[in-house]
Amino acid sequence: MPLSTKDIPLHTEAEQLVYIVDDDEALRDSLIWLLESTGLKAHAFSSAEAFLAAWHANMRGCLVLDIRMPGMSGLEMHERLIAMHSALPVIFITGHGDVPMAVSALKKGAVDFIEKPFNDQDMVALIRNALATEQKQFELHRQEADAQRRIDQLTPREREVLELIVAGRLNKQIADDLGISIKTVEVHRARVMEKMGVNSLAELVQHVMISAPKGE
């Protein structure tokens, strides 16, 4: 039986779940059985409202979402999730005549859609692709957060040295730029490398690039 919203655990960062949102109980139950038979974990909801009541920003995995439902539609729910900056990839389940709406949803960030009646293997393949996409995004965000955390640990002087290192300045040039000795630059440089957890200039530049706001 699908679990109620109160049964949903807080997720560890390693746990991915497939969230099924569909008003058709038979379809929910069959999808739960299908996914669990392939080793995937899933939770089902009978409405968009029920899912949104349980949603939190730390959810991992993907969404399988019916495009048409009583009350709030799947499209409306997708819009809400976009506004809340949800990172869950969305696969829409569509009926006859819903393809134009599904295409519109793809343009707004949904990862795919599948028409009823669908092939079980096709559905599982779409879900596995969506989970792989979410895993990559999660790892990227974790790397960004780690790089920024390390930069935040630097002292103001170490940040100045870091910026000049990344700009390609040599130790003597950094010493002249900051009005300090080369020996002091070397000490700051060693501390920067240690705090950033890197062993080479290339790694240091990569960490700084990862932490930089997108668009810079």
Rank of each mutant, 00 (worst) to 15 (best):
M1E: 14
S4W: 07
T5G: 00
K6A: 13
H11R: 09
Y19T: 06
D24L: 03
E25A: 12
I32E: 10
I32N: 06
L35Y: 06
S37I: 00
L40F: 10
L40V: 07
A42L: 12
H43S: 04
H43L: 07
E49P: 00
A50F: 02
A50K: 08
F51D: 05
L52M: 15
A53L: 13
W55T: 03
A57V: 12
A57I: 10
A57C: 01
N58H: 12
M59H: 11
L63K: 02
L63A: 01
V64R: 02
L65I: 02
L65A: 02
L65R: 04
D66K: 10
R68V: 12
M69T: 05
G71C: 09
E76G: 04
M77K: 07
L81A: 07
A83W: 03
M84C: 08
S86I: 07
S86T: 08
P89R: 09
P89C: 12
V90G: 01
V90K: 01
V90T: 15
I93T: 05
I93Y: 04
T94E: 05
G95C: 11
D98M: 06
D98G: 03
V99A: 06
P100E: 11
S104C: 00
L106F: 10
G109L: 14
A110H: 03
D112R: 05
K116C: 02
F118Y: 15
F118E: 10
D120L: 04
Q121R: 13
T133W: 07
K136W: 06
F138A: 09
H141K: 10
H141Q: 15
R142C: 08
Q143S: 08
E144K: 15
D146P: 00
D146F: 04
D152N: 13
L154A: 08
E158F: 02
E160T: 07
E160Y: 01
L162D: 04
E163R: 07
L164Y: 05
I165L: 15
I165E: 05
V166I: 14
V166C: 10
A167Q: 12
G168F: 14
G168H: 14
K172Y: 11
A175P: 01
A175M: 09
D176T: 13
L178S: 01
G179S: 11
G179Y: 15
I182L: 07
H188I: 00
A190T: 06
M193C: 00
E194L: 13
V198C: 09
S200H: 14
L201D: 12
L201W: 09
Q206P: 00
Q206G: 01
H207P: 00
H207K: 15
V208G: 03
M209G: 01
S211E: 10
